[in-house]
Amino acid sequence: MITGNFEYHQPSSVPEALALLSDLGDEARVIAGGHSLIPTMKLRLAMPEHLIDLQGIKELKNIDVSNGEVRIGAMTTQAELIGSDELFQAAPIIRETALQIADPQVRYMGTIGGNVANGDPGNDMPAVMQCLDATFLLQGPDGERSVAAREFYEAAYFTARDELEILTEIRFSACEGGYSYGKQKRKIGDYATAAAAVLLTKGADGSCTAASIALTNLADTPLYCADASSHLQSNGVSEDSIASAVASAMEQIEPVDDNRGPAEFKKHAAAIILTSTIRQAWARA
């Protein structure tokens, strides 16, 4: 459980970090909170020769809510997300999700940028970002570009981020209405057996005016469930429509057997979790 040798770099600005990344090339890895990368390095499954630590870049650590838009710097920790009342007002699902990630010690170090950029299907924030229809800001040698969270994930640990880019910021619109992040896990600190992010808006007449559903750890990427979402929006929220929406979402999932259980169990649990999460979001809408 001791990492291989590596050089440690702590740039103080994004351009400096980008320059290091360009210079050092394939042998360098960017590190945020380190809670995925360091264990991998300790197992010597990853042996980068250079670590570029983003902790010294102050501009990446901020939460800004203005004009209905939320901007979160990539190096903002889960604990800071939980602690921000401003963010809770704008998107309460973030706090609810962050509180279900690992344990307090991990949340003091783990960052939202690391969580969404790593491409680990077990991470919770990617599905929440898809649910929020967030945009990720990427900075690279050729400048800045943004990619929608719903377009970002390609396969496990493969994302739209180029190796020479750094994910610096997350943007999404403040949301109204009901929200819920439901997660089944074996214990504190575990990844989800199945988890669901749901946002629902209720019109004055009781109709569903907006719906968004995404799932965690049920395929090799987070899953935005477009059909299930639009089904609720078109048909309103009732036990029948929830059942149809869940059935639709379940067609998308491809869980795999692991120590959390066989795929058949996960499929069943996922439907239960999604159903209860929709119900809770609607109750809060």
Partner: peptide, 16 residues
């Protein structure tokens, strides 16, 4: 008796 094994027990008994 972790989650999936308990689920499996219920499943085998036809409770789903």
């Amino acid at each position: 008796h972790d989650h999936w094994r308990v689920w499996k027990t219920a499943n085998k008994l036809g409770l789903h």
